[in-house]
Structures are given as structure tokens and as C-alpha cells.
Design a binder for these strands. Structure first.
Lengths: 236, 236
DNA sequence: CGCGCTACTTGAACATGTTCAAGATGATCT
DNA sequence: AGATCATCTTGAACATGTTCAAGTAGCGCG
């Protein structure tokens, strides 16, 4: 069983005469109960009643803190993000080779996310709906997204990679998209320990490395400009 | 209101002493009722009871023909596929320029799918779950997927495009993936008439065209080989 | 005709996500 | 202390997807 630390930072101690500490604890208890149950039985077989029971609160109370059952998976989303950033941090200390840094960050994600692969389908399903606050493109998940893009910014900036400035600027976002692609593949990957996703990462990283470096060739400039322009125009 | 023709082919007349014609009709009636209601009120506000009512059957009967509410959206999936193929067929007669052919096929899809954009989110959500038979990667939807890839095969084969054989062979599947990307963007595109998706297509097509043609350059061979290899290994 | 069989049809019953009106708690003010 | 107010907390009630045991319809066979 995986030990789960809740992400709820009890850090905004700035409200005047901070109440709602009781509230935070209840919220955390509910989130923790949900995470346990999701891991034990999966998303579908976890009922809101069971979550409320295990957290020792009423069902209505669960809804006071989480607008819907789907909102309960947000905790995973956040947690994976936080754990990933922490785990990746270490490996990023170890090398300045772009390809290695990228590979580390991507495989680390697969490691961190592994315990959740079982119900990742449901997880993903929720995130896939455009109107969902969990969508990786939504404004609500902007924080997590930015944090993730920052991670890739560090991958680029701490590396030996020499590329034209405009590409360098867009690269973190492009790599984040690559990560989204990896996630997509991962979700659909039924292999043991997500072997195939890991293989994908091992194969795709050198390719990306090669492509990015090729962007310095004179003949590539036009194409690269187009790509950068495309990304720009596509951003909301 | 869009006229909806059901996809149910009453074509397998090969069963001995074919009964189940009554059944086919009921099935079609239910699918039609569902489609009307989905378009009128969207997915969520359409209840199974309402579908059964409009189709003039009992709710249990609706479940006799469709295993779940989600299965009712399969009809859309199929229908868009069929309409797209038909609509694209015409434009493919008109030109042999690769870029134009590709652009036509992609924009035609946006045209065909437009009426469904309203609840495409739900549609997509369903399709996004890996275990769902509606997933574009699932074995169940293999038929539709193959048909779609065939369409891109025709885009390539009827075109003036000159590229190395291995790429030519992989291109249809790659273009299908591109289409999936467009769909992903489209689903998240809140703009009027999906303007932004159309803009994306206009921008991305020349880029793809350029990239594919670049693949003939000697310096590119290695990269292209890698890409082809990647696709191969990733296919289940 | 009556029997049996398969294909179909029914709606009540069930499971579970969600809402809501009513109440409990505790801090702050007078 | 008592009043007031925001913040929780409750569980019954509701909505809706889904199941299922019981029926009905038509068809072929003896």
C-alpha cells in the first residue's frame, strides 16, 4: 500500500484570525479516505457513501468539501504533479545532457504514476472532458500545468542544449505536450509495469533530441519558424 | 435540425430464415430517438427514460439493444465517419496536390462534425476511456479506424507526393494520428463555428507538407527512419 | 391444435451520485 | 451571558443509469 500524503497545504495562515482549520482537517480526511478506497477498489466501486463512512463524516459533508466525485481525483492529479517535481528534482542535479535530463523527467513520471495506473482510465476519462476543471488545458488546472511546464523549463535551461532563442522559449511547452502524449499512451498501455510506455520514452527522447538539434540547420529555419508560429497561434 | 440516417446496415441478410427484422427496426428507432434528443438537449439532459419514451418502447427494451447510455453515442461515431468518407470522396476527385487533399479531408471533417460539437465533450469523454469500446484505439472501433486510415491512404496515393516507400507506407497512419490531434483540439475549441480549429488546419497542413517533403533530404534519412521505427514499435 | 423455443418486451426495483432544508458549533460582539 | 453570524454537518429525498424476473409474440414441429 502506498503512503499518501495529502497535498492540501495548510499554509495560507494569512486569513484574519484563521478559522476553518477544523474544515481543512475534515477535507483532508475525506481526500485521504477517497484515495485509499480508489486504490483498494478502483474508481467505480468506490461509492461516495463509502468515502464518507471511512472519513467518518456524513455524505452531505463530503459534498460540502468536494463538489462531485470527480473532484476527488483532483487530489491525485496534484499529488502526482508534486511527487513528480520532487523526484525529478534529484535527477536533474545529476547531468546537464539534454537527452538524459528529458529521459529522466519522463521516466520519473512513469515511476511516480505507476501506483495509479489501475484506475488511470477513469482518471483520464474525467480529465478528458473539456469542460472539466480537471482537464489539463483548463484554467482551473493552470497551476499544475504551469508547474509542470516549469519543470521542463528547468530541463532545458540546465542543459547543454544550444538552440535558437525562439525555440528555446517554446520548448518547455512543447515538451509538456510531449509529456501529455506520453500520458495518453500510458493510459492506454496494458503492459506489465507499463513497459511499453517506458520503451516509448527511451525511443522518443533521442529522436526529440536529434530533432531539436537539427533545428539549427539553415534549411530548417523556415520549418522551425512555422512550428513556433503554430504553437503561438494555437495557445488560447 | 439535422437529418440523421442511422448507420445500422440492414445488410447481413445471410442468417438462415432471417428473423430479427422487427428487432432491427426497434433498434433503429431507439438510436434515432437518442440522436434527436442528444441534439436537442445534450447528453446529460437526455435520460434513458426520455429516449425510450420517444422511441415508443420501454426502458428495459432500450437496454436490450444498447448495453448502456454510452453505447448510444456510438451511432454518432459511426455516422460522422461515414459522412466524412462520403464528403471527402468528392473533394479528393478535384485535385492531386497532397497539401490540398489533406486540407480538404481535415476541413471536411470539421464541417461534418460541426452539428455535434455541442456535446462533443461528452462524446469525447466516453471515447477517451481506454477500456471503452468507443476508444479510437480499441479493437471494437477497429472498423471505423481502418476506414479512416484508408481515407488518408487515398489522400496519399492519389497525390503527387514523392517520398521514400517506408514513409509512404506509414504516412496514412501518421495522418490519422494528426486527425486525432485535430479532434482533440476541436473538442476543446470554444470558438464560433470552430474557427480556431479551421485555422489550425490551415496552418498545420502546409507545415506537414513541408516536413514530409523534407524527408527526402539526405540529412533527414536517419530521423525519418527513427520516426518510422518508433511508430512501428508503438503499434500494439 | 398444442408444445416448445427463441426473440423480444415490460416496468418495478435497485444502486448510487447529488441536492437541500434544517440543524449544530463555535467565534465575536455587546 | 445572550445574540448574531458564518461555518460546518446531517441524512432523508431525489434523479437517473442499470438490472432482472416475469411476461408476450411469433414460428416451426409433431
Amino acid at each position: 500500500m502506498v503512503t499518501l500524503t495529502t497535498v492540501t497545504d495548510s499554509a495560507h495562515r494569512s486569513d484574519p484570525a484563521n478559522r476553518s482549520d477544523r474544515g481543512e482537517q475534515t477535507r483532508a480526511a475525506i481526500a485521504a479516505a477517497a484515495q485509499e478506497l480508489f486504490l483498494e477498489r478502483g474508481y467505480d466501486k468506490t461509492t461516495m457513501r463509502a468515502v464518507a463512512d471511512r472519513a467518518g463524516v456524513s455524505i452531505g459533508n463530503a459534498y460540502y468539501y468536494f463538489a462531485s466525485k470527480e473532484h476527488l481525483v483532483q487530489a491525485f492529479y496534484d499529488q502526482i504533479q508534486v511527487e513528480h517535481a520532487a523526484a525529478a528534482h534529484d535527477s536533474l542535479e545529476r547531468t546537464d545532457k539534454f537527452a538524459e535530463r528529458l529521459r529522466e523527467v519522463l521516466t520519473t513520471w512513469v515511476d511516480v504514476a505507476e501506483p495509479f495506473h489501475g484506475f488511470a482510465g477513469k482518471f483520464f476519462k474525467v480529465a478528458a472532458e473539456p469542460t472539466s476543471p480537471l482537464s489539463p488545458f483548463s484554467t482551473e488546472s493552470r497551476g499544475a500545468r504551469e508547474a509542470s511546464i516549469d519543470l521542463f523549463r528547468r530541463v532545458v535551461e540546465g542543459s547543454d542544449l544550444k538552440v535558437p532563442a525562439p525555440i528555446r522559449a517554446e520548448l518547455p511547452e512543447l515538451l509538456w505536450l510531449l509529456q501529455m502524449g506520453v500520458v495518453l499512451f500510458w493510459v492506454h498501455d496494458p503492459s506489465d509495469g507499463q513497459k511499453r510506455t517506458r520503451a516509448l520514452v527511451r525511443q522518443v527522447v533521442p529522436l526529440v533530441d536529434k530533432l531539436v538539434r537539427l533545428s539549427r540547420l539553415p534549411g530548417m529555419r523556415g520549418v522551425v519558424g512555422d512550428v513556433v508560429e503554430l504553437i503561438r497561434s494555437v495557445r488560447p
